[in-house]
Write a protein that binds this DNA or RNA. Structure first.
Lengths: 117, 117
DNA sequence: ATTTTATAACGTATTTTTACGTCAAATAAC
DNA sequence: GTTATTTGACGTAAAAATACGTTATAAAAT
C-alpha cells in the first residue's frame, strides 16, 4: 500500500478528525498558519487519486471523507516499524517503548491487564 | 528531525547492515534488481546532505557509514506512530499489536517478564 | 608506461510532492 | 435579476526525490 507524505498525512489527520467535510472545513481546522485553499484542494485531490479519500458532490460542493480508517493506517504504520526496526519482535519493540516513554503506573497496569486476559 | 523517504530508507538499511562500505559494497547487497551504481551514489549523497551518513575518503574511494543508529531512528519512528495514531497511549498501541500480530506464547511471556521487573 | 577497471562526483532528466493563482460554476446577498 | 462570495477544478510553478549517463581520477593489470 501507498504511504502518505508529510503534507498528505497532515490533511489526512484533519479528514479523520472531522469525518467528512469540504476543503473549507479542513482549512478551518488548521492550527495557526492556514495554507491557501487551493493548496489544500491539491492535496485532497492527490489523496483521492491515491485512494485514501472519496467524495460526494452536492452541486459544486464536494464533501470528502476517508476511505481508510486512521486505525487501519496506524496499524499498518506500526507493522512497518515493527518489521523494519525491531526485527518483527513485539517484545523487543515494547521494551524499547517502555524505556523511552516512561510508563505511568496506570499504563503499566492497564498493559498487564490486557496481556494477561 | 528529517524523515527518510522510501529509497533513502532502503539504502540506509543496507548501510546499517554493513556498518561501513563503498557504494559498490552497497550495490552488492541489493536483492534482485540492482539499481545503477550512480543511482545509489545519488541517494547516498543526499543521505549525507541530510546528516544521516558520513564518509571517509581513501583517495577516490569513499567509505560511508551511518551517523544515526538504526535503533535511534527506529525509536523515533515508533514515537511518531505512537503519537500520531495511538494518542500517545502505549497500552492502546500494545493492545492493537497483540491483536494484529498474534503473539506466540514465548513472546507473551517474554513481554510480561520485561514489564514486571 | 600504457591500458583497463573501478571509483564517486557531477550534471541533468524525470517523476513526485508541495504550493498557489486563476477560472467557471454555484450559491448567497442585495 | 445582478453582484458578490464561496466553491473545487485546473493548470502550472517550484521544490524535492528518484534515476542515470558521463566524466575525471585513482588503482590495478598488463
Amino acid at each position: 500500500m501507498q504511504k502518505l507524505t508529510k503534507a498528505e498525512e497532515d490533511v489526512m489527520h484533519l479528514i479523520w478528525e472531522i469525518g467528512r467535510g469540504t476543503v473549507s472545513d479542513l482549512l478551518e481546522k488548521f492550527e495557526g498558519e492556514k495554507p491557501p485553499h487551493s493548496t489544500v484542494s491539491s492535496v485532497v485531490r492527490i489523496l483521492e487519486k491515491k485512494g485514501f479519500v472519496g467524495h460526494k458532490a452536492y452541486g459544486k460542493t464536494h464533501e470528502y471523507f476517508p476511505l481508510i480508517g486512521k486505525e487501519d493506517y496506524g496499524r499498518r504504520s506500526l507493522g512497518d516499524v515493527l518489521r523494519n526496526y525491531f526485527d518483527g519482535s513485539v517484545s523487543r519493540l515494547v521494551s524499547h517503548l517502555a524505556e523511552e516513554e516512561q510508563l505511568s503506573e496506570r499504563e503499566l497496569e492497564e498493559l498487564l491487564r490486557i496481556l494477561n486476559k
